[in-house]
């Protein structure tokens, strides 16, 4: 089991003919993802370097391929429109990798997606590494990678020597890889890893993912990696305290970040007396989360929480 995506998920790439879109479509195909096509307006009817069909619109792509997930590499000025197009065409899981989408565009996207018509749509990102359900190469369960993460560092749940499998939720890309790597090294598998992205207004948040992992029978524990900015980690801590019964390990990046400065991610800023690391760490600890003091201890902290 996994959350959001699995070996049967059919994926298209919006922006498949751009350099990043083309490169990562190949990367996902190589991992074993069922990539079924792509969208670039004006290039409908052509095929990409991998022989995948290209369509002018998402709705044409969905009709022809039955795709239920999309990976978006459309440039920032057009990314919000690409998200709405995917949702309107019936795509269920929309993963927007694009970095640099205007915040106001995302507030409008969120407003539209909050309507009843789109209640089943899951948006991940923007400004995120994507989502992966690790699988076993060359089997009928190859897994599904939608995004830019290196696939090989992951350990499929079915192959975990310890028999333990975790779900990972993170606002950071490379820090997620760090957590994945430390788990894999310790023989802890991953059911699904979700990079929710570093923007202030985005799709799925910690609580959405915590809820899905909590309901997933295969997931034994959850790692959540937060950072400075906003109060999502505090809200997640409340939710964990009330409703999550699996062990949760956490880390908050940015304890040493100065207030008022944006630390790379658009959403990583301490402002108006809000968003500092200490209050997030305190909230998580109060909710019973096993907080790693060092980013090097993510794997060991999870292992301990799982009784390994």
């Amino acid at each position: 089991m996994s959350i959001l995506i699995n070996s049967d998920t059919k994926v298209i790439c919006q922006g498949i003919t751009g350099s990043a879109g083309a490169f990562h479509t190949k990367g996902c195909l190589d991992y074993g993802t069922k990539m079924v096509g792509g969208v670039t307006p004006g290039k409908g009817g052509q095929k990409d370097a991998n022989g995948l069909p290209i369509f002018n619109t998402v709705s044409e792509a969905v009709e022809a391929t039955g795709a239920d997930a999309s990976m978006i590499f459309v440039p920032p000025p057009f990314a919000a429109d690409a998200i709405l197009e995917a949702a309107d065409a019936g795509i269920r899981v929309i993963v927007c990798i694009t970095e640099g989408v205007p915040v106001m565009d995302m507030t409008k996207v969120r407003r539209v997606l909050s309507t009843d018509k789109f209640r089943d749509v899951k948006l991940i990102g923007p400004n995120c590494p994507g989502v992966i359900t690790p699988g076993v190469e060359g089997t009928d369960d190859p897994g599904c990678k939608i995004g830019i993460m290196p696939g090989y560092i992951h350990m499929p749940a079915s192959k975990a020597p310890t028999g333990k499998k975790v779900g990972i939720i993170s606002r950071s890309g490379t820090l997620t890889y760090e957590a994945v790597w430390q788990c894999s090294e310790r023989g802890i598998g991953q059911t699904t890893c979700v990079g929710i992205g570093g923007d202030p207004v985005r799709g799925m948040g910690f609580i959405d993912c915590l809820d899905l992992f909590n309901k997933d029978p295969q997931t034994d524990g959850i790692i959540m990696i937060g950072e400075i900015g906003g109060t999502d980690e505090e809200a997640a801590a409340d939710y964990i305290n009330m409703l999550i019964d699996k062990p949760v390990a956490g880390f908050i990046a940015g304890r040493t970040a100065p207030p008022g400065r944006r630390m790379g991610h658009a959403g990583a800023i301490i402002s108006g007396g809000e968003g500092g690391a200490d209050s997030k760490i305190a909230a998580l600890k109060a909710a019973g989360v096993h907080v790693a003091e060092s980013p090097a201890d993510l794997g060991s902290t999870m292992a301990k929480a799982l009784g390994l």
Partner: peptide, 13 residues
Amino acid sequence: GAGLAMATMDIVK
């Protein structure tokens, strides 16, 4: 990576 960059600062401290 921004998150890893922040975490690296933190581990230095």
